[in-house]
């Protein structure tokens, strides 16, 4: 007989939600780390390195994420590297996020007025201190709304992981829906879960943006 949507099904969705959150956190943390490296290389002043990073960003922004996940999951398996589904999608999302965050932060780094770097240089500060103490703290503030916006996209984007068989929230919803024949109810709950994750972030992001706009008016 067909089970109705009850507590066990809800628990199954919650576990899917857990995986969605975990995948997002891993991809975002990995993407931030690698993205920072991308942004720094992209603005390092060395023409060859800047071009190489530009191509890297171009490739990952210019091809579908779905394709990138296929390549990591199936492509690497062909070379004999059989990855667990979670590890594979985590790698795929991390690399993709590094390109997008790298480009967001490249823009933010370049938006910090040139005079800041000049003043730091005139004071005898080296590259590492100029970046760590002067440019990045200001660039991060500038990029915060866009970074939060990207995080929201990432949360929703993790549903693509279902394609290689990883059971996150959207895939869990599909499974429960197929079992209960209550798609409206099930996907309604799934949608609400995504919304509860994303909406506060979006709200925080737009508040940041308003505050930054106010600060730059002064």
């Amino acid at each position: 007989m067909t089970p109705h949507f009850g507590l066990p099904e809800f628990g199954f969705l919650l576990r899917g939600l857990q995986w969605t959150v975990l995948l997002t956190l891993v991809a975002f943390a990995g993407g931030c780390t690698a993205g920072l490296a991308v942004a720094l290389l992209r603005t390092c002043g060395h023409k060859g390195v800047e071009w190489a990073t530009r191509i890297y960003i171009g490739i990952f922004q210019g091809t579908p994420l779905l394709l990138q996940l296929f390549v990591v999951y199936y492509g690497l398996a062909l070379t004999g590297l059989k990855l667990d589904a979670f590890v594979a999608v985590a790698i795929g999302f991390t690399v993709n996020a590094s390109a997008f965050l790298g480009e967001i932060w490249r823009g933010a780094i370049e938006a910090v007025p040139r005079g800041q770097t000049e003043a730091a240089m005139a004071l005898g500060l080296h590259y590492s201190s100029r970046m760590r103490d002067i440019v990045l703290p200001q660039a991060i503030r500038i990029s915060l709304p866009a970074t939060i916006g990207y995080l929201v996209q990432l949360i929703k984007g993790t549903s693509l992981a279902a394609i290689v068989g990883f059971i996150e929230l959207a895939r869990a919803g599909q499974i429960v829906s197929n079992q209960t024949f209550q798609p409206l109810l099930v996907f309604g709950v799934v949608g609400a879960m995504y919304f509860i994750l994303c909406w506060p972030l979006s709200w925080w992001g737009s508040r940041m943006e308003a505050r930054l706009a106010l600060a730059s008016q002064r």
Binding site: A119, L123, S129
Partner: peptide, 19 residues
Amino acid sequence: NLFPHMTVLQNCMLAPIRA
């Protein structure tokens, strides 16, 4: 070209400490 995210005191202390 003061550093806007630092206090006046921090602006003055940074370079002596770092450089």
